[in-house]
Design a protein around this nucleic acid. Structure first.
Length: 218
DNA sequence: ACATTAAGTGATT
DNA sequence: AATCACTTAATGT
């Protein structure tokens, strides 16, 4: 009984995301191949150095993907949302160790699929192949954008972009984060973020208070 | 009222 | 832009 209800739950989530891309039969196969896990905000679902036996398919919610430098400080790479899969998981080196960390941003349901399925589906299902290629190029573009802002823009611009991205993602121009959390994501320090915030408020770009930033201009 | 956490400030590298 | 050391302000218990 329990199994059946879990299966239909998973199946429904898959249908919501993929019914226009994959046929019914394949969705059922995906559902059978993976196991569903639920996470709440701030849960780490994959860490640097973890062995990659599974790749994630996000069915609900969103994740943030980060790397770490030698001193253990974090840098936000990009967000993954429902309907995405983590393609850089697939770019494995010999060690099969993850180079990234994935943290849930909110309540999130993820289907973990054994990596060998990837090979199998890539040859067997052309729609899967298209899907992977599409997400691959999408992520690559985002990464190029991230490199661009890192290399050519100052912190002020990076912070504004960060806030806009976040507002866009949540569909709300109020962001509920501390300056320290943002500093972590941007690989900066709390003091620096606080000072730029103050400057942006004077410019009339934002308004903010404790744990809250309101974006005024887009 | 007290402790904890977030944000502000000045000086230094 | 980053870090340190310290202050002030907001919030939780």
């Amino acid at each position: 009984m329990a199994n059946i209800s879990i299966d239909t739950h998973c199946h429904t989530l898959l249908q919501n995301q993929f019914q226009n891309i994959f046929d019914e039969e394949f969705i059922t196969e995906i559902c059978r191949s993976g196991h569903l896990k639920k996470f709440t905000a701030e849960n780490t679902l994959m860490n640097i150095g973890d062995e990659m036996k599974y790749f994630p398919l996000i069915l609900e919610g969103s994740l943030k993907i980060l790397t770490e430098d030698n001193d253990g400080r974090e840098l936000l790479l990009y967000y993954l949302e429902a309907g995405d899969t983590c393609v850089i998981t697939l770019a494995l080196d010999q060690s099969k160790k993850s180079r990234i960390r994935a943290i849930a941003e909110e309540f999130t349901q993820v289907l973990f699929i054994p990596v060998n399925k990837m090979d199998e589906w890539m040859v067997k299902h052309k729609h899967w192949r298209y899907f992977v290629m599409k997400t691959y190029s999408h992520r690559l573009n985002e990464m190029l954008g991230a490199i661009d802002t890192l290399a050519f823009h100052n912190m002020d611009d990076r912070l504004l972009k960060y806030l806009r991205d976040k507002a866009m993602k949540t569909g709300n121009n109020e962001i509920h984060n501390t300056h320290a959390q943002i500093a972590n994501d941007l690989h900066s320090s709390r003091v620096v973020i606080s000072r730029i915030m103050a400057k942006l408020e004077i410019d009339g770009q934002i308004k903010y208070g404790r744990n809250k930033i309101e974006l005024l201009k887009f």
